[in-house]
């Protein structure tokens, strides 16, 4: 039956063509001599830490092209789940590991070390046309964002005398993000406690868009997004009880911008740390991160602090 043969041939050709596309990229895995590092390093975790880790992985490619470094963005919690199952070598985290996650690691016999890699500042932002705010206190922020404010604090005038009698429009990250967890903990005193009637988006660019087009808007997100959108937004200084501090590279790094700055981490699995390529990668990470952190919008730790992290890591590497 000619017709059928042709049809089958036709299907085979389509599939064949398509699979050729995939196969052209076959690489020879056996290349590489004794000295070059090989293997693979799986990293997953926080989307906040991702830009740093991605940049380091990119640079690491230059010195160790045979090592396959992959980075995922399952979020801090999702990353720790995989880490506790021994599925990843390194976990990116925008908060310290929780007790529950520690237990999960212990159950599976996974040891780890926590390394601080940079600081992230949370910025409170308003529209550039907003001329009545020069700073907000932590109490005022709490008054705006706490759960009890829902449906009650609806106007600027309720926050401080002299503010206009206009509706306030709030923007913030979605409840699944580590940024939200951190902000609520720092401002409202309890992680995950905030009013629900605000515009939430996991995509910070949406928040930038919202605040920059709304004179009566107010929102918060990572300092990196402000740095990229300086012309569209106005930064609000925060008074945490010791005077008004505006978040800058300097105030975040020296710890005066409180309570809205936090350290971010990577966690290294002890089994993975037995592998040469992982040790090389982590050392490379700590060496390069001061420079990279600035470049992707985060704030480097003081140099002495990095030296401590290197020491901590080297003490952690299992001796054979």
């Amino acid at each position: 039956m000619k017709k059928t043969t042709k049809i089958i041939l036709g299907v085979a050709v389509i599939l064949g063509l398509a699979s050729c596309g995939g196969n052209t990229e076959n690489t020879d895995e056996n290349s590489g001599d004794e000295k070059t590092l090989t293997g693979s390093i799986k990293i997953d975790g926080s989307s906040t830490v991702y830009p740093i880790t991605e940049a380091i992985a990119e640079e690491f490619r230059e010195i160790a092209p045979e090592v396959k470094v992959t980075v995922g963005v399952s979020g801090t919690g999702g990353g720790f789940k995989k880490f506790a199952r021994n599925e990843t070598a390194i976990s990116d985290a925008s908060r310290p590991i929780k007790d529950k996650e520690k237990v999960a690691c212990e159950e599976n016999g996974i040891g780890y070390v926590q390394l601080e890699v940079a600081y992230d500042g949370l910025a409170v932002l308003i529209n550039p046309a907003n001329d009545w705010i020069d700073h907000l206190t932590v109490e005022e922020l709490k008054k705006i964002w706490e759960p009890a404010a829902q449906g009650v604090i609806m106007k600027w005038s309720q926050i401080r005398d002299g503010f206009p009698d206009e509706e306030i429009h709030l923007f913030g990250p979605g409840v699944a993000s580590g940024t939200y967890d951190y902000f609520t903990k720092a401002i409202c005193g309890e992680e995950g406690a905030s009013r629900g009637d605000y515009t939430a988006s996991e995509d910070d660019n949406v928040l930038v868009q919202g605040i920059s087009t709304d004179k009566y808007g107010l929102g918060f997100f990572g300092l990196a997004y402000y740095e990229e959108n300086k012309d569209k937004l106005k930064l609000v200084g925060v008074d945490g009880g010791k005077g008004v501090v505006t978040p800058t590279q300097a105030t975040v790094a020296d710890g005066t911008y409180q309570p809205l700055s936090r350290p971010i981490f990577i966690y290294v699995n002890d089994k993975a740390a037995e592998r040469e390529e992982v040790v090389a990668f982590v050392n490379f990470y700590l060496e390069l991160v001061p420079e990279i952190a600035q470049e992707v919008g985060y704030i480097a730790l003081p140099a002495a602090e990095y030296a401590k992290q290197v020491e901590k890591f080297n003490a952690f590497i299992p001796k054979k």
């Binding site: 830009p51 992959t70 980075v71 963005v73 740095e227």
Partner: peptide, 30 residues
């Protein structure tokens, strides 16, 4: 599927990323 994969898969067992994930990742960058 991961966000940063600096190599093309060479076998069905390799890690991978796909275009929608790459797009999503880029859209959310500052």
């Amino acid at each position: 599927a991961l966000a940063y994969v600096p190599f093309a898969p060479s076998s069905p067992m390799d890690e991978f990323t796909v275009m929608p994930i790459q797009i999503f990742n880029w859209v959310s960058r500052p």
